[in-house]
Amino acid sequence: MEPHTDLVAMHMSDGIVNAPTSVIFGLVAVLGLAVCVARARGDLDDRTAPMAGLVAAFVFAVQMLNFPILPGVSGHLLGGALCAILVGPYVGAICVSIVLLLQALLFADGGLSALGTNITNMALIGTFVGYGVAVALRRVALRSRGGLVVVAFVAAWVNTVVASLGFVLEYAIGGQGLALGTVFGLMTGFHALIGIGEGIITALTVGAVAAVRPDLVYLTRSAAPSLTIKSQGVRS
């Protein structure tokens, strides 16, 4: 078996953008996560808290699975849309952030000073934009499981591409080494392809959960909370 020399680095390393840019996006990440922690409480109960822990563990696992997109180039799941659809955007952003934190601390993947940029791109931008797409298409998702699977694919694809645009923004502010137009073209081009893989994985996962435990799919559950939670006494 080939040694996995390049599996090692999947996220931005230290020094890819300059120190001021790292500090700015470190602050963005801290503020964003503070809001998420404050709002996550409302989405967590005895049933959804274990699910959220499992979703984070699942994202860690799937992020290890690089799939080829072009000769010599691979991609892997980012997971923001997947998390948001299953456990909500606030809890979902925390799930992705915990994965990124552990990868940086334990697995030497993603620089410590780059945690702010990596969290901003994958945990905040990807998760919330992906969730926004899913909410915009919620009518389709509520129609049938097939509709939900399609919505999951589209939300995940957009999540991947906008997360890559986050990198382009950070590079524009504090990076050097390659023309900005080239960075933009390559990042969006590669991630439009990676997004297809992200979309397939997200669609399969959300579809599987919806088949077995539709009550654990946040996107479709939160649209009709009174039906699922208080079905005993109150008919709606």
């Binding site: 390049d6 699942f58 696992a61 890559s164």
Partner: peptide, 21 residues
């Protein structure tokens, strides 16, 4: 999740990902 990380991970592509590329 354990099977994906523990077994399927051996089949992962070793090419650089989009960002590293």
């Amino acid at each position: 999740a354990l099977l994906l990380a523990g077994v399927v991970s051996y089949a992962a592509s070793s090419s650089p990902d989009g960002l590293d590329a």
